[in-house]
């Protein structure tokens, strides 16, 4: 199933734009989805270190299955 995943922060510099569309199995855990995303990033996959998948409500744990709806890939945060 094709899923759109929004990119934020340093991930916007990966040359992939503000989102990527990846083909993911369904159901799929966040851990497995991150592994698949690494291949989409190719040589830029180092940017995924410390990243987490999140919905508009919460950051997903590695074992969570990806829910339907909006998904984002979030690098380490730096607010304030």
């Amino acid at each position: 199933m094709k899923r759109k995943i929004e990119l934020y922060g340093r991930l916007r510099d990966a040359g992939l734009g503000s989102s990527v569309v990846v083909d993911l199995p369904s159901p799929v855990t966040a851990r497995r989805a991150l592994s698949i995303l690494k291949s989409s990033f190719g040589p830029q996959s180092v940017l995924l270190k410390g990243c987490a998948l999140a919905t508009g409500d919460e950051v997903l744990s590695s074992s969570n299955e990806l829910p339907a709806g909006r998904l984002a890939l979030l690098p380490p945060v730096c607010g304030g």
Partner: peptide, 25 residues
């Protein structure tokens, strides 16, 4: 807080600052 900071120098070049990995549920 899912917010990211990018500093710009006088030429407009940007540099994302390092941060904290988000705590997972």
């Amino acid at each position: 807080l899912p917010i990211w900071k990018q500093e710009h120098d006088a030429r407009g070049a940007g540099r994302w600052l390092a941060g904290c990995a988000l705590p997972r549920k």
